[in-house]
Design a protein around this nucleic acid. Sequence first.
DNA 1: TTGAAAAGGTGGAAAAGTCAACAATCAAGT
DNA 2: ACTTGATTGTTGACTTTTCCACCTTTTCAA
Lengths: 162, 162
Amino acid sequence: MTNSRDNAIDLGLLLPFQISQLNSALNAQAKVIITRYGDLNLAQWRIVRVIALGIENTTTPVRKATGIDKSQFSKMLSTLEKKGYVVLHPNEEDKRQHVIELTEKARIAHERLGPVLDERQRHLVAALTEEELAVIYKAIKVMADAAQKTDFNIPISEMEEE
Amino acid sequence: MTNSRDNAIDLGLLLPFQISQLNSALNAQAKVIITRYGDLNLAQWRIVRVIALGIENTTTPVRKATGIDKSQFSKMLSTLEKKGYVVLHPNEEDKRQHVIELTEKARIAHERLGPVLDERQRHLVAALTEEELAVIYKAIKVMADAAQKTDFNIPISEMEEE
DNA sequence: TTGAAAAGGTGGAAAAGTCAACAATCAAGT
DNA sequence: ACTTGATTGTTGACTTTTCCACCTTTTCAA
């Protein structure tokens, strides 16, 4: 079938590379599913979902929760507004921010797409045990921390061979 | 309305999202390191690396091994050629493809940057055990395969129950 | 051998993401 | 109240990435 689509993953190359490959595959998958069910892109869907699940409903917390750059977040939010998925209200507690309210349209979209993506999530981890999943979550956290460091000074002795 | 999805959020079960975040962090890290050592970007470096390691040396296999989109690969390769990192030779076996040869410049770049990225790799996984790493490699493979499926049609019965 | 289908590569357009400047707002100390 | 510095969001220019339509070459089968 279509498994072993890359020799790259089988070759046991570097971990960041494999994660990048995996991320690409997951992105492509999500994109196909999401666009099949409506006119939202991935970033817009994440915004809708965070609000629909009641996690956050003001701009900055939503932005932080979705992990989207503030510039792009501003653009995505305004297109969401233009498309009629959200209504923006002034936030009395902090007049720089907005309170985001989902419209009926957004709620319907979420009701349709949410279960599909839940099913996808189950499918993704179906072959993994609870213990393995725990390891993965830990590893993600560990590596995300480790990704902050950028100064890897190689000892001179190692660099001499030129 | 409240179902297991809520716990899923609390448990941090949004795996594709976390992988995406992790990938962003790793990409940013790699970008800083690579640009500090030269004028290659991440995709170009990967091409150089696959060839330098002797894994492949013709266009399509290199492209598959690096996992780069064929359009972007074409562009990256031509800029690599312009910058003097590679020389392209016609491939007699398949005249659509090229044989890629690294120049001395590319070899020197690889000698310099390779050890630094190896050090980075060690740093990334320093907090993980061998067993955990094995789990991660397995999980990446499993999920990359699972990411190929895009038809998650929710049975009508399931939609009514929940 | 020839014609259709598949694969490789190219270039342009569109989307996504990045960056810097700016204005409004807030927080906090004076 | 007033100043200072930090946060937030918006905008426009810019770069990078992704997508798609097209052309050439190869492959395969009749």
